[in-house]
Design a protein around this nucleic acid. Structure first.
Lengths: 205, 205
DNA sequence: TAGATTGTTAATCGATTAACAATC
DNA sequence: TAGATTGTTAATCGATTAACAATC
């Protein structure tokens, strides 16, 4: 039995749909349509229906989609029907902001450990977590079975840190360092660099 | 005379090329090829050549591309041959991290003012800038002629803040709030939400 | 000259949209 | 029933890749 391969670009839109559905839920809404969702997101209704149809039939003709139900289904598809533990590497400005960010848990994640290589920072508290020595990161991460990491270290150190994480069993990395990581293809990497986004907007100014 | 319209997706790759070229420059490299660049970035050499050819002829057969020259040309294309002033709205954890980030200037930007609506924060210093009252934001931003903004306020306030910025002349917004903004089409918006990226990786775990 | 690599064309591949039968 | 909206097919549109003549 062959699992149908879903294009990356479709998977990448699901979190956006989910976020919009969650906003609607907070507004007390019960049902929506592909058209309404599309207007909110600047995506055609046909595309939304086609994307969702890759994973099943979640709507009802004439009515649309039940919002809490569709949100639940998308969470299941994305494996967000659980809380993923995250290891954060880097306790500088960015690391501190990440550690203090309150929005993870509601959307399926929690930062459970922080590492740094700076002796000044190791042992200090960062928003309820104690910064640990990166020397011992590999064993601790493997032991904890953590699969998701965020890297917030200087560009020069990011590749090395990423390799250690992969070696320790991490399979998804959100990389804040402005550098392209080279990792085995089974490891997912997303680059998260504000400058890249700013730089692509100035073209149009 | 009609300007050729360049697809968004090509413009979006230029900052990535530029970043790789800057890394090569720091390593003292003088020339590269579309193939080498492609390997570093996980992009086909044909695509890199085709992308660049939209804007001119920057390479030399048999040799490749002169790195500092190509970097300069890409900077010109993206209008990064100057420093863009940025207004930052929101002085919470994220705003503080942004204000403290050292990497803007080298890549064409600088945060020149910060606003918040919290009386406790207004008047306090944040990495060499004083937090100003958001009440007066419109006039100050318009006066300064600022075209680029970063929004790091709670989701519920982001739309309102964005509208004020647009009204004040801002034409490019990097939005850290997890919500889709609705703005006139001439305003560029990039959403910058770590959860969206994390959520699209868990599908593959 | 021989080898390397560009810029570009044509072919392929994949994603988006339009349209509509099915049906709630 | 009449109106609305889904899921899906076929058509369109756009992006990527392969290949190669030009040329450094």
């Amino acid at each position: 039995m062959k699992e149908k391969v879903i294009p990356d670009i479709i998977v990448a839109r699901l979190p956006i749909y989910l976020l919009a559905l969650q906003h609607m839920m907070r507004d007390g809404r019960q049902v929506t349509s592909s058209q309404e969702l599309g207007e909110k997101l600047g995506i055609s209704s046909a595309q939304i229906r086609k994307d969702l149809s890759q994973f099943g039939e979640f709507g009802k003709q004439g009515t649309g989609y039940n919002i809490p139900y569709l949100a639940d289904e998308i969470r299941k598809i994305l494996k967000l029907d659980r809380i993923w533990d995250i290891v954060l590497v880097g306790a500088g400005d960015i690391g501190r902001a990440i550690a203090g960010y309150q929005g993870f848990y509601d959307r399926g994640f929690q930062v459970v450990m922080i590492f740094d290589n700076d002796f000044e920072k190791v042992g200090t508290a960062l928003h309820s977590l104690v910064v640990q020595d990166v020397t011992y990161m590999g064993d601790i991460v493997r032991q904890a079975g953590i699969k998701v990491a965020m890297i917030a270290v200087p560009a020069a150190e990011a590749q090395h840190v990423a390799e250690q994480l992969v070696e320790a069993g991490v399979r998804a990395i959100l990389n804040y360092a402005p550098i392209a990581l080279h990792l085995p293809p089974e490891v997912r990497v997303e680059n998260f660099d504000p400058l890249i986004h700013l730089q692509k907007m100035t073209y149009y100014l």
